[in-house]
Amino acid sequence: MSCSKPFNCSVSRDCAFRLEVKYVLCSEITESLLDHLQTGGVPLSITNFSRHIPEAKDLFSLKLSDHSVATGLVGGNEFVATYGKFGEKTGGDIDLGLLPVLKDRQGLEEKLMAFFSQTAAPGIS
């Protein structure tokens, strides 16, 4: 699948001051995208809500590292990733404590870029 801009994202802090990034993709989240995102041993779990409620969408969760997780809906076009260790206030500026977090974010976004095989700049804000 190729998109000129595979995703947009908006960045905020969650209630524990961790980086929270909402990704809006150029197309819906498919099982093949999730297969791609879990390469390298990233644990993926899927909760089949649709088994219980026909109109429901299934939930996926990718454990990017000990401190970072991405959650979204299969068939949706957005998901949310939270980066950072609970209990460590990272504040507004990037500091050393945030470096492993950046690595998680970078890893995920590189995988997204690769999946959509596009050439335009990603929507990192």
Partner: peptide
């Protein structure tokens, strides 16, 4: 506000 709500509850 969660994805769980959006996936499971909100459609109803």
């Amino acid at each position: 506000k969660s994805m769980e709500w959006q996936g499971l509850i909100q459609p109803q």
